[in-house]
Amino acid sequence: MANVSLFNPAKRITNTTKIAKKTRSKGQLASFLFILPFLLGFTLFCIIPIVYGIIISLFQWNLLDKGHIFLGLENYKQLFISGSYVNGVFFSTLKNTALYAVISVPLFTICSLVLAILVNNVSKRFTGIFRAIFFFPYVLSLSVVGAAWALIFNPGAGFLNALLNAIGIDSIQWNATPAGAWTMIIVTSLWWGVGFNMILFINALNNVSEELYEAANVDGASAWFKFKDITLPSIQPIMLYVVIMSTIGAFNLYGQPLLLTAGGPGTSTKVTMMSILDEAFIRHQLGSASAMAIVLGGIIGIFILLQYLFIKRKEG
């Protein structure tokens, strides 16, 4: 809340006091009533679950049994003992998730930036149309996006193999190899989400100072120079934001592999969220599932913290 400084602090205090005085005449109760509904929801559906989740992770907690056995940190220990069942499941799927992050984050960031630049450079009267076309998949649901791309990638009936055949390439069994399965997931995710980041980039690009470009034009700078030395540094904060947000999104990956590959072939596209939900709803082990969720949450939390610190820094 560094931005409070935009306001004259002394003035703010007197203003707040005046309104506060007014409300105090009716007691603090009136002002408390304004925040009560939120506090209720926040406590019931945020704070209590967080605490409850930590507690569950300390137990052997079968979803179908009533009796729970206190284990202390055993669930976490098991998670990190190499060779244990949960260790194998958790880290193999975490590796898959990390692989997706390493490929998708740079790819999505670059693609959305390229689209943003493209939209800004097409004939002016088409700007709105192209922006809408690149952006609309964002408002579709994951189910619909998954269904559409499952059909397109379908080895026999799919449009993609039909296209490949038309140019003389044999059909590809997309979900038969890890590379093919990841291609499905990545292309689908790209189609769905790239427009969102593109909007952020378009906004950032439009905020780059015109004067810098004009000065560079006077100096006869090349387009590449202008991009490298003016555009990139100016949009760097948004780029960092997009990178961090995409990383958080990558670690939350679930629906695309569920709908497109079911984690296959084998377990090559099985992601951490899937292993957590399997542990909870197929093996009914809520305790170890919660421990896994908290460890994954910790990893995602690091990126959220980075993003938070970076927003703070930008606000000064």
Partner: peptide
Amino acid sequence: SMLIPNVITLLPQ
């Protein structure tokens, strides 16, 4: 709470 990802509240919720 803004730092805490959804996956943590999912199962207890």
